[in-house]
Amino acid sequence: MNTPITDGPVVVAYAPDKFGRAALDHGVALARRDGVPLIIVNDTRGDAYVDKRFAGDEELATLERELSADGLTVSVRHDLVQDVAEAVVAVADAEAASLVVVGVRRRTAVGKALLGSVAQRVILDARCPVLAVKPD
């Protein structure tokens, strides 16, 4: 596994699905191991009526409470942004993150051509190391 070089926080791009959870699990494990803070980013463009990758306020509050219960420093970013990938990179930059963790999914050829992937853009744009995680 990736070893953070600096002691900046670990940033997790989270979504309430198996990809997001896989990213979160790895992020939590790494933050615990290195004793660095954890930042959970769950942003949305808010352009659909319902966004299944935008977690409920309650869910994130519960998550934050559970994780910080055993000593981990956790903060949550849950905002409306213009561009989700940009927002994740911006948080990583602003907090001088040691590592960004994203969940990645398999995509079809058509999907690759038409849809911009948040994970892909984070991987390309981030200035710190990025850990791409696949769910089991």
Binding site: A48, V50, D57
Partner: peptide
């Protein structure tokens, strides 16, 4: 436009 997604 409402920007915030609602919880379904």
């Amino acid at each position: 436009l409402r920007r915030k997604p609602l919880e379904i």
